[in-house]
């Protein structure tokens, strides 16, 4: 977020890059609760590769099916997951951008600028509904802590893709090297479903051995 933005609030960031303090800030910041884990998943300001700003939870997550993973412009090891997600994008078709969204989360605020991320997005043909996101270092760190590992715990993951149904509060994690079909199928696991009333239970298994 910009300096003028902070000045408008009349507060200064503390050592953690946090804005505002104590009860006064909480009062200022009060917002409607939007569902499960909405107070746990940071609603930080992020910048997209399209040079727009958004609130992470309110604008990008709320009510959606999402895939979230970590990238770095300078770490080519993270690009293989982007390549896989390009295949997932193809599988999702026009659902991507409508109710399914992919977020590639920067890990290196200094180098993962919106311009640099735009380069990655164009390289892999990211369409509507697939956003590369960056933010201030403290915000990126917080997002990684909350989505990929606990505070004080291990470092964020380049190896993990989060998949979630935000409205239901149902989240899972899949290996970043999984193939595109597996990743798309995991999204189907968490998708909101509907019970067919009156149907008798159907046999799923085990299947005949021979």
């Amino acid at each position: 977020m910009s300096d003028d933005f902070r000045q408008a609030r009349g507060v200064r960031p503390n050592i953690n890059g946090r804005i505002g303090t104590g009860a006064a800030a909480a009062e200022d910041c009060s917002r409607p609760l939007h569902g499960p884990l909405s107070t746990y998943i940071p609603n930080v300001v992020v910048q997209t590769h399209n040079f727009r700003r958004a609130l992470f939870y309110d604008d990008l997550l709320r009510g959606k099916l999402v895939l979230i993973h970590c990238v770095s412009v300078q770490d080519r090891n993270t690009w293989s997951a982007i390549e896989t997600l390009a295949d997932v994008q193809a599988l999702l078709g026009d659902r991507l951008g409508r109710d399914v969204f992919i977020y590639s989360l920067a890990t290196d605020a200094e180098h993962d600028t919106p311009q640099a991320l735009r380069g990655l997005a164009e390289k892999y043909g990211a369409g509507d509904g697939w956003l590369f996101l960056t933010a201030e270092p403290a915000a990126l760190e917080l997002l990684r802590d909350r989505l990929f590992g606990p505070a004080g715990g291990h470092h964020y993951s380049m190896n993990l893709i989060r998949y979630g149904n935000v409205a239901a509060g149902l989240w899972g994690g899949i290996l970043a090297t999984a193939n595109a079909e597996s990743i798309a199928e995991r999204l189907s696991w968490v998708e909101t479903g509907k019970r067919q009333a009156g149907d008798l239970p159907q046999r799923k298994g085990p299947a005949p051995l021979y």
Binding site: A25, D28, V45, A139, L142
Partner: peptide
């Protein structure tokens, strides 16, 4: 209006 990060988390 809604900026509330990361305070309170």
């Amino acid at each position: 209006e809604f900026l509330c990060s990361p305070d309170g988390l």
